[in-house]
Computed example of a mutant assay.
Amino acid sequence: MTTIRDVAKAAGVSTATVSAVVNSSAFVSDELRARVVAAIEALEYAPSSAAQSLKRGRSQLIAMVVADLANPFFHRIVCVAEAAVAAWGFSLVVFNSDEKPDAERRIIERVHALGCDGMILVPVGEPSQYRRRRNDAKRMPTLLFGRIVSDDTFDTVTIDNLAAGREVTNYLLDLGHRRIGSITGPLHLTTARERLEGMRQALGARRLSLDPARLRSGEFREDAAYSAALQLLGAPDRPSGLYVANGLMALGVMRALADLGLRCPTDISIVSTDTIPGIGGLRPRLTRTEHPAAEMTNEAVRLLVDRITRNKSAPPRNVIFQPALMVGDSCAPFEAGTPERSGAPLKEAG
């Protein structure tokens, strides 16, 4: 294997000069640089990345821990993040916690063992799990993506989930729907909890409240949402409108509608939150709020690299992106008295 000494001998220079050319760490005349570069190319010399990392005090590795790689949304942000970290001179290492807190804990330990320079984490555990990791965050910069915890330790990049829940619920209310249900994610996660709270805010503004009987958890999973929708929509007093709290669950709900023989929007109007590739191809086209996923990912990488290279002691930065309402064909005005839409109205608040 070619060594730095072989290059130095071939170029007729010292090993220090070769190192200066390779690492751009000191001035080298054009004539000497040309000789070193020619020797490197002739001998096919490849500097040791491990040695370079040791010298810099960094591994040039960024870890990304996502909640569910089967979810096309997370697959998309991984692709964007890979290109973004490469543009900053880093490499991406990807882990999948599969929405399991125990798996996430093991992954975080592995990330630290690898000596990664920083981590982008989509948290899946209870908030107390991350409060215990404050010292870890100080040792290795960590950014929380999409979901936050009740803590001021971490940089965060999120969507305005309250606004997302309000917007789609208001859209149903404006169409005359009052018997509105929801399929949520796990409510210990801020994304699920805040989207549901946004829905409640929209209802409360019109002196309405959500009937608990029309609320189900779909766990942010397609199959779980399918089962929840079979229960909720198979009941005689099913909702006339349904808010599904993410795009992957919306796919499960649409499958359940087909299996129940229900038509959207004739029998039920559906709205959702989230961006997953291909969801725009659903028929009917789904009315939804979308995340600017690429912009969020690029901003997350930028903040983390800045934290790694420049601002390790700066106060936490929290960036909140606004969702965009995309109106499709999955909703219709409520028509009172039709057999398929009969049932008790939402209860009035207080």
Rank of each mutant, 00 (worst) to 15 (best):
M1Y: 15
I4H: 06
I4M: 15
A11F: 08
V13S: 00
V21R: 07
V22A: 08
V22T: 03
N23S: 14
A26N: 11
F27A: 13
S29L: 13
E31R: 14
R35Y: 05
A42D: 08
P47S: 06
A50V: 14
A50T: 14
A51E: 02
K55V: 12
R56H: 13
R56N: 14
G57H: 09
R58Y: 14
A63E: 11
M64Q: 14
M64K: 11
A67N: 09
L69D: 04
N71T: 05
P72K: 01
P72T: 06
V78C: 13
C79Q: 11
E82T: 12
A87S: 15
W88L: 11
W88E: 15
G89N: 09
G89S: 10
L92Q: 13
L92R: 14
V93Q: 11
V94I: 11
E109V: 10
R110L: 05
V111R: 14
C116F: 11
D117W: 15
V124D: 01
S128V: 15
R134M: 10
R139W: 01
L143I: 06
F145L: 15
R147L: 00
D151S: 13
D152L: 06
I159C: 12
I159V: 14
D160M: 08
N161W: 02
L162P: 05
G165V: 04
T169F: 04
N170C: 08
Y171E: 09
Y171L: 12
L172A: 03
L172K: 03
G176T: 01
H177S: 02
R178D: 04
R179Y: 01
G185S: 02
P186Q: 01
P186R: 10
E197L: 13
M199C: 11
Q201F: 09
Q201K: 10
Q201T: 02
A202K: 05
A205I: 06
R206I: 06
S209T: 13
S209H: 10
L210F: 03
L210A: 11
A213S: 15
R214C: 00
L215N: 07
L215K: 11
G218D: 07
R221D: 13
Y226K: 04
S227Y: 02
S227G: 08
A228F: 08
P236W: 03
R238K: 14
R238W: 10
R238N: 01
P239Q: 11
L242Y: 14
V244P: 11
N246G: 04
N246K: 06
N246I: 03
A250T: 15
V253H: 10
R255I: 06
A256D: 09
L262K: 06
L262V: 03
R263L: 13
P265N: 00
S269F: 00
T273W: 00
T275P: 04
I276V: 10
L282G: 03
R283W: 00
R288S: 07
A294L: 00
A300E: 09
L304Q: 05
I308Q: 09
I308S: 06
R310D: 13
P315S: 01
R317C: 07
N318V: 02
F321S: 04
V327Q: 05
S330Y: 05
A332F: 04
A332G: 07
E335L: 05
P339D: 10
P339S: 03
G343N: 10
L346P: 00
L346M: 04
